[in-house]
Design a protein around this nucleic acid. Structure first.
Lengths: 414, 414
DNA sequence: AAAACATTGTCTATAAAATAGACGAAGTTC
DNA sequence: GAACTTCGTCTATTTTATAGACAATGTTTT
């Protein structure tokens, strides 16, 4: 059965709207009975049964034993055929790479992370990613031809249609390199989608986090850089050239320091991880914080953003002030975006997201002070609770979203 | 025929997707033949003919004579039944009101504008609007029960779902007043939709201006205030509480003047019409511009924004500098929004849109300097060419969009 | 002007898709 | 064990769409 099916897979997989509705229901509920599906959709029992038979025939669905009786005959349960194939999510960060192997319903089966340096050339980096994927596949016992989709998030501006990085500051050697082409060589059956890392985090938050059923939200990643993933009307907003959400280079202070983008006083240059570390080192050197000075000496003369967090937790005033200043600058920018975009939620993630409440409180305060009341009364600003999982989860969701395509979408507006 | 139909109208009018596609094609093309429609949609001739018969039967479509032969039998043309009913668009500005009466296809039949003061209470103001509508109806020979939809744009934050203004700075007496309820009393058959004035201008630009087929754009209105209408993925983005686009209160200079919203240094307080006039009066008084001083004396001691424009056209350096400074501040804010939203077009409208190129050039320069290259390479920033028509056209489009509702929209995403 | 060809739109037979509801199988409740 | 429920299949029927024949009505060529 799987053998005959395998050769028929052509990605993306086209579904009509009835099939899509069934699969969507199964994604949400895990298991479902034919009768419940009929009731949910409003279709007749015959049509529902026929559609299910077709999907089982095609290999998407399988029976999953018997359900519990509702006072009559026991129903037969249906679930997504987990042997149909697998999808992979890859979250490439500036200093690490996260990979997840998931089944066709989006459940993560295997997961792996390791440090990595994105500044190297794409071939060895992606080669290592392929190795990791192959390793996870071995653990799961899955063949290369069973990999149907791969979603990849990269930390830079992505021309989404082409799946190519455009002028990426962190990884200049990747410019115009076809990530899709490289990965396809190892997984010819797979449908490869490349997107910005923040977009996939937003997608992860929407599918498996607190962003579920939220129409309009912003996911802000604060780490080495600062970026935002935008969801409008329940869909990722990528903008006309696919680089929407690049808020790291919004101007905070015209007289501020020079950013790697060439401008002055960008948010990223003043409030992201490196800026925090830099300010902390100044505080250590000019004697305003003994604790930071000691940490710096322990670290061999440098401070990382995490060290500032450590100092902050121990009540160091200088460190606290640095974090507060960052939060305020980020909040000032977000205030403008709240006025413009009017989201109901802002999720904050990235390496700095576990910096505790000092950062969050100052962000909230700045936003509330500078945004319109109507925009803030129902606004929630919180850390993403998905932690480092948002990225890979979103990458898996991205792969699935573009693996299954609904055909014959009718016009939605007059 | 029309008599039996009239009583059957229940707004909103539900259409299935086939009917919607036919009506949409007719909106675009004006007239169409059955065969062309069959070719466009891919439906068989029989189904197309049947659907057309149904729509004619229901009163939406009517025959419009014969078309020209393509080398064979002459086709019969179809068009939208203009006797079906009418829609009204009302664009309420701070100092004026524009009303248009249009047929069901969106073509404007009658149009009227007059000065008005929105600071008065809603009852007399809207009462006058109703009078104008009745007057236009009389000119067109249309009865009150033939008005099927009314779209209204108001200059303030609208809770779109309720159709009510929330904390409107320009018109405090309108807070929580049910505009829909008031208008419905005079036009009980009409479906009334209320939206922010900038959203309807964006809608007008999208339906009848240069925004047609543009997926992501921002319409910026600069007048007494500054606001933006946002289109994402081809749809108006209203945000979670319907107040998206309120960019007038984004902070430009923390040490700037106090805005009517209570904060300091808002874009609106520093760059909109009143600020321009205020700066010009200072320039007139402190002697930096003789021309402005003369204009001020002619006007009885005050200057309006238009006077600055006049001075600018005559080459007055002080006036030019004021305009340039406004353009730069607006451009600085837009630069951030371009990074965030990545639109392909920015349309600039409102009372200041006819201020010529000095404003536009300085806006463009500021945006290009501070936005990412990938976001600006294909970005067009231009004045809206619709002038004062954008508002009413959009209000008509709004009425039509919510008058005709497509039923049974299938799921668009897995 | 007649013949040849094109296009339009209706009509019919047919195929495809969905429905309602009958009915037996498989349970639970009393 | 009798009465009642629920589940899922099956059949007859209705609804919806299609293909293609064909007459009506044109233009173009000879």
């Amino acid at each position: 059965m799987n053998n005959t099916f395998r050769s028929r897979i052509k990605a993306p997989i086209l579904l009509n709207s009835a099939e899509a509705e069934i699969i969507r229901a199964l994604r949400r509920q895990g298991c479902i009975t034919s009768t419940d599906l009929s009731r949910m959709t409003g279709w007749s029992k015959a049509k529902t049964a026929q559609d299910i038979r077709d999907l089982v025939e095609k290999g998407f669905l399988m029976e999953a034993g018997e359900g519990i009786s509702q006072g009559g005959r026991k129903p037969r349960l249906l679930c997504i055929n987990r042997n149909l194939g697998f999808v992979v999510g890859v979250d490439i960060g500036a200093t690490s790479v996260d990979v997840a192997l998931a089944d066709i319903s989006g459940s993560v089966l295997q997961r792996y992370s390791e440090p990595a340096d994105v500044r190297q050339r794409p071939e060895p980096f992606l080669g290592r990613c392929v190795e990791i994927i192959l390793h996870l596949m071995e653990l799961q016992g899955c063949r290369a031809d069973q990999i149907l989709g791969i979603g990849i998030g990269v930390p830079g501006p992505v021309d989404f249609a082409r799946g190519v990085l455009v002028a990426p500051p962190l990884m200049p050697d990747w410019e115009n390199f076809s990530i899709r082409g490289f990965v396809k060589e190892s997984f010819p059956n797979a449908f490869v989608v490349v997107d910005n890392d923040v977009n996939i985090m937003a997608l992860g938050e929407q599918r498996a986090g607190d962003g579920i059923n939220v129409d309009h939200f912003i996911f802000v990643k604060i780490g080495t850089g600062i970026g935002a993933g935008i969801v409008s009307n329940g869909k990722i907003h990528r903008g006309s050239t696919g680089c929407a959400g690049d808020i790291g280079h919004i101007c905070v202070d015209k007289n501020g320091p020079i950013c790697r983008c060439g401008n002055t006083g960008c948010l990223e240059a003043m409030a992201a991880g490196p800026a925090i570390a830099e300010k902390a080192m100044q505080a250590a050197l000019n004697g305003s914080s003994l604790l930071l000075k000691n940490l710096m000496n322990q670290n061999g003369g440098v401070l990382r953003p995490e060290d500032v967090n450590t100092a902050c937790r121990e009540g160091d005033q200088a460190a606290l002030e640095i974090i507060r200043a960052s939060g305020q600058m980020i909040g000032d920018v977000l205030a403008g975006l709240v006025n413009f975009f009017n989201p109901s939620h802002i999720f904050i993630g990235g390496g700095i997201a576990n910096f505790g409440n000092h950062l969050l409180v100052s962000i909230r305060r700045a936003v509330l002070r500078r945004s319109l009341p109507l925009a803030t009364t129902h606004l929630s600003i919180n850390f993403s609770r998905m932690g480092p999982d948002a990225g890979v989860t979103g990458a898996v969701a991205l792969a699935l979203e573009y693996l299954f395509v609904i055909e014959d979408q009718p016009t939605t507006t007059i």
